[in-house]
């Protein structure tokens, strides 16, 4: 189990978060931009230090400010998928995935699962954003991380690709035996993927934010419902007939 209880002073507010994430569980932090989500995930990764607090995984202390313990990222054995593509530009897709794993069979299986096996010899700048993010996920999974961290991994992608990747990740999630911490500002993504959705505003847990957002969405849907009622039968906007009829 991953246990986090940290404090860090940021320019506009203090980040104060405590949570636990069990093996196989996907904890989602959702909140507006600038809420401290990325800082939190960077602290868990060891790329930033908290001012106070501790982080432990399965009883092993990664950070304890009182005892001056700080385990560098290299020793935490993590997977970290960044917001925008951080594949190594001088390596092919295959070499990127093999960067931290030598198990060829597993690399092949992962690339096939994400449908990018045919791109294994391509350079990262020759493939699309969605394919790069798939490769980045494969790269991090191939090393069997103790904890997987994802920082808005699909936010830079177009909606249809985002939706597809979300579904692929949900399918994959069942097989993940380690805690996953996922950061997003996308409500649908959070509710679709998360086992435990934790809203965060100005560096603190803010459960009310989620219900406010849900109410906003409900208002939107009420308005959109009227739109669909009057227009979908004439022009289905790319929805399959059965799906668009089902929505009416």
């Amino acid at each position: 189990m991953l246990e986090v209880d940290i404090k860090k002073r940021l320019p506009d507010f203090d980040l104060e978060i405590s949570f636990a994430c069990k093996k196989g569980e996907l904890g989602v932090f959702i909140g507006p931009s600038g809420a401290g989500k990325t800082t939190l995930i960077r602290i868990i990764a060891g790329l930033e230090r908290p001012d106070q607090g501790y982080i432990a995984y399965d009883g092993k202390i990664w950070v304890d400010t009182r005892r001056r313990i700080f385990l560098p990222p290299q020793k935490r054995h993590l997977g970290y998928v960044f917001q925008d593509y951080t594949l190594f530009p001088h390596l092919t897709v295959y070499q990127n995935v093999a960067f931290a794993s030598m198990d060829q069979g597993e690399i092949e299986a992962l690339l096939k699962f994400f449908g990018i096996w045919h791109l294994r010899n391509s350079m990262p700048d020759k493939i699309s954003g969605g394919e790069r993010q798939r490769a980045a996920i494969c790269q991090n999974l191939a090393r069997h991380p103790q904890v997987l961290l994802l920082d808005e991994p699909f936010s830079a992608l177009d909606f249809p690709i985002r939706k597809r990747l979300r579904q692929e990740f949900k399918a994959l999630k069942k097989n993940l035996a380690f805690p996953t911490v996922y950061v997003t500002h996308d409500l649908t993504e959070a509710l679709f993927l998360g086992d435990n959705v934790m809203p965060i505003v100005n560096g603190r847990h803010e459960p009310a934010w989620l219900s406010n957002q849900l109410e906003d969405v409900m208002d939107d849907y009420k308005w959109m419902g009227r739109f669909f009622d009057s227009y979908v039968p004439k022009k289905p906007y790319g929805y399959p007939a059965s799906e668009s009829q089902g929505r009416r």
Binding site: P73, Q74, L78, Y80, F82, T86, F88, R143
Partner: peptide
């Protein structure tokens, strides 16, 4: 972020220099 990615993937500073920084 390339460097940070290398660190997270377990590379020391020296290894990250030779395997990530130098080729780029």
């Amino acid at each position: 972020r390339l460097l940070e990615s290398a660190f997270v993937l377990g590379l020391s500073r020296t290894a990250a220099f030779f395997r990530v920084v130098l080729p780029n």
